[in-house]
Amino acid sequence: MSENDPSLDVLNESRRSAGFPSPADDYLELKLDLNSLLIKHREATFFLRVEGDSMIGAGIHSGDLIIVDRAVQAQHKKVIVAVLDGELLIRRLSLQGSDVSLVAENCEYPAIIVSESTAFEIWGTVTNVIHEL
């Protein structure tokens, strides 16, 4: 179909009045949806509640809601949720060579060095924090 097609003029009011396709046309009907902003993989995304203050330096407070995406591969320096000693733990992941440690963002909490014998597993990557003011 060419731009001269008369049926297009009938169908598209804004295109006719501008004489030029507006880039805004594509977004005319869109409402902003927080889900689409915060959730990249619907099936793999979970919400968790933070309890404790070891991540305060990263702006993650006790009572905050975190969004965890299990489809995102955990990487060095990313904030993750780990399974440690039968609990879900939020920490910053540090990978140096073959050394794995879980670093807090609060000097009162020492880093946890993950040894071969530690029952440890990465549960998911934290993508966002929702903090109520």
Binding site: V50, E51, G52
Partner: peptide, 8 residues
């Protein structure tokens, strides 16, 4: 009833 992520 969200699961708890411990920050400790």
């Amino acid at each position: 009833e969200l699961p708890i992520a411990h920050a400790k």
